[in-house]
Amino acid sequence: MTETIKTDVVIVGAGPVGLFAVFELGLLDIRAHVVDILDRPGGQCAELYPEKPIYDIPALPVVTGQQLTDNLLEQIKPFQPTFHFSEMVTGLERLPDDRFLLSTNGGERFDTKVVVIAAGGGSFQPKRPPIPGVEAFEGKSVHYAVRRMEAFRGRHVLIVGGGDSALDWTLNLAPLAARVTLLHRRDAFRAAPDSVNKMRALVDAGVIDLTLGQAVELIGENGVLEAVRVKRDDGSTHEIAADDMLPFFGLTMKLGPIADWGLQLNENLVPVDTEKFETTTPGIFAIGDINAYPGKLKLILSGFHEAALMAQAAARRIDPERRIVFQYTTSSSNLQKKLGVA
């Protein structure tokens, strides 16, 4: 286990609102650690709609999710946040001295005075394929990620999907597995053309199988898979023998471990006040799509406002003695120095 990081603030979520929180905290001299389950910043903007135009960011008539993310990263650069990507905050414990101990699934630990939950719709997790009873096979025969390739040596592996993950693992496991079958709904793939060509070459060489159709039933007992029933476009079905199934159906958002932190929840949202955007637990704030209050609108611009007010309250909690003087970035040489423009 790595050493516990002692800090003033941990922001859970690196979406637009989490990123802007770094800015508002930074103006008040508070440096933040930011944890996100994705492997890059941007949250939904990066994962769901990097190319889609957004039209309701003030003063930006049109901006894509990716541009917005890039701009925010540029804006917060002076405040040097420490990012922890591909990690999910799993545990939150209250410490006796009014601090919090956060732990991640990657074994990181933070001892922090303030927690800012900017988790949007929750954490991105692999989408469960819509096959009845799939839960019973998860962890034993159905895997959403490959942790150890060796685990598939000599096995009959059925990989489902047409994107990069499906194709990459088809190519990587082909030499190792007894047999790899790639199952996809149609004979067109979203994955990189190079991977698709390599996959087709392996099919032509008789090394792997490609089957078109949709998995409709898992056959096996006690979580041990034997075969998967596949439905073709014409409605007919057939079985494919398989020891393991690797479905790659993209990501979906789940509230995740936040539900276990002892916070008051209201339909998977975290109620906050509208002065500080603090939860019912002093020291834990919630901003952006994850919070709830009367009149709440799930807009990025609302999240930005919430970040600004949260930062003021967080600063008072971190140093109750401190007198916070309200300043403008246009005129305050103090703020401009922090931004590196003075």
Binding site: G161, G163, H184, F249
Partner: peptide, 13 residues
């Protein structure tokens, strides 16, 4: 849209 339909349940023509 065809790409997104890959993630849907019981996709038909």
């Amino acid at each position: 849209e065809e790409d997104m339909l890959d993630f849907a349940y019981d996709v038909r023509p």
